Simulated assay, not measured.
Amino acid sequence: MNKKRNTLAAYPYILWCCLFIIIPLLIVLFFSLTEVSGDSYEFSLGNYTRLLNPQYGMIFFRSIRLALISTLACLIIGYPVAHIISKISSPRRNLVIMLFIVPMWMNFLLRTYAWLPILGKNGLINNIVGYFGINPIQFLYNDGAVLLGMIYNFLPFMVLPIYTILIKMDTNLINAARDLGADRKTIFSKIVFPLSIPGVISGFTMVFMPAVSTFIISSLLGGGQSMLLGNLIEQQFTTMGDWNLGSAISLLMMLVILISMAIMNRFDKTDKKGSATLW
Rank of each mutant, 00 (worst) to 15 (best):
K4M: 12
K4L: 15
A9T: 12
A10Q: 09
Y11E: 05
Y13E: 06
L19D: 07
I23R: 03
L25E: 01
I27G: 12
V28N: 05
L33C: 15
D39L: 15
F43E: 11
S44L: 08
S44G: 04
G46K: 12
L51C: 01
L51D: 04
Y56R: 01
G57D: 02
F61D: 00
F61L: 15
S63N: 04
I64Q: 03
I64D: 08
I64R: 07
R65S: 15
L66D: 04
T71R: 00
L72A: 15
L72V: 15
A73P: 01
C74A: 07
L75N: 07
I77S: 07
P80C: 05
V81S: 12
H83Q: 13
S86D: 05
I88N: 01
I88R: 10
I88L: 10
I88P: 02
S89W: 04
S89P: 02
R92W: 13
M106C: 12
M106A: 13
N107L: 07
F108Q: 03
F108S: 11
L110V: 15
L110C: 09
T112S: 03
T112L: 08
Y113F: 13
P117C: 08
N122S: 14
G123Y: 08
N126T: 14
N126P: 11
I128P: 02
Y131R: 11
F132W: 09
F132C: 05
I134Q: 05
I134T: 08
P136C: 06
P136Q: 11
F139T: 03
M150C: 07
N153I: 14
N153A: 15
L155G: 10
V159K: 11
I162W: 05
I162C: 09
Y163K: 04
Y163L: 13
T164L: 09
L166P: 06
M169S: 13
T171D: 14
T171P: 01
N172W: 02
I174A: 07
N175E: 15
R184N: 15
K185M: 14
K185R: 12
T186L: 12
F188L: 10
P194L: 07
L195C: 12
F204L: 15
V207G: 05
V207F: 03
F208A: 02
F208W: 11
F208Y: 14
S218V: 02
S219Y: 05
G222E: 04
G224S: 00
S226P: 00
S226I: 14
L232I: 08
I233P: 02
Q235A: 13
Q235K: 10
F237I: 00
F237C: 01
F237A: 03
T238C: 01
G241H: 00
D242Y: 00
D242C: 03
D242E: 00
S247F: 06
A248H: 01
A248L: 02
I249R: 03
S250N: 02
S250A: 06
L251W: 01
L251P: 04
M254F: 14
V256N: 07
M261Y: 03
I263C: 01
I263T: 03
R266E: 12
R266T: 14
F267D: 00
K269A: 07
T270V: 11
K272I: 08
G274R: 09
A276C: 05
A276V: 10
A276P: 00
